[in-house]
Amino acid sequence: MGLIDKLISTARRRSPWLLHFDCGSCNGCDIETLACLTPVYDVERFGVVNVGNPKHADILLVTGTVNLRNREVLTVLFEQMPEPKVVVAIGACGLSGGIFREAPNVVGGVDKVIPVDVYVPGCPARPEAIIDGVVLALEKFREKSKGKGEGK
């Protein structure tokens, strides 16, 4: 691994920009996710920024159950993110559809639609758990870089 590759790999792990997408959650997980950005947890210490735009994001945080209507949106957002990218599914609903999984309009967990790299359980997931999930996601970048060279 050359010096430049090392530099890029470090930069990737220290500058994760997030896109948070609420697929239809009860807002429990959303509130906990946003809490990470508050002064109490201050994830910007680690370079984390909530960008609200798939075109700038590295990590997609998805909360809530995927249903027939928001499935398309989720796919589009995922496709609009440039490589390398990782997906973190948050909360029971994001993992499996949660208590709504039997509903007729529900598709299920996030991994039914897009590939998920990290699963963060909880109902709602705690901020510490979410931060832990993001840190795990950062490790995925290293694996992805190894797998695909420069990640292109």
Binding site: L7, I8, S15, R45, G47, D58
Partner: peptide, 28 residues
């Protein structure tokens, strides 16, 4: 800005890390 909002804030090198990361991302 982070200090003014009673946060600790990112390290001073953060903008460079951001740009290096951006330069290595996919073109689209």
């Amino acid at each position: 800005t982070a200090r003014l909002q009673s946060r600790q804030g990112p390290p001073l090198s953060q903008p460079f890390l951001d740009v290096i990361k951006l330069m290595a991302k996919e073109r689209m």
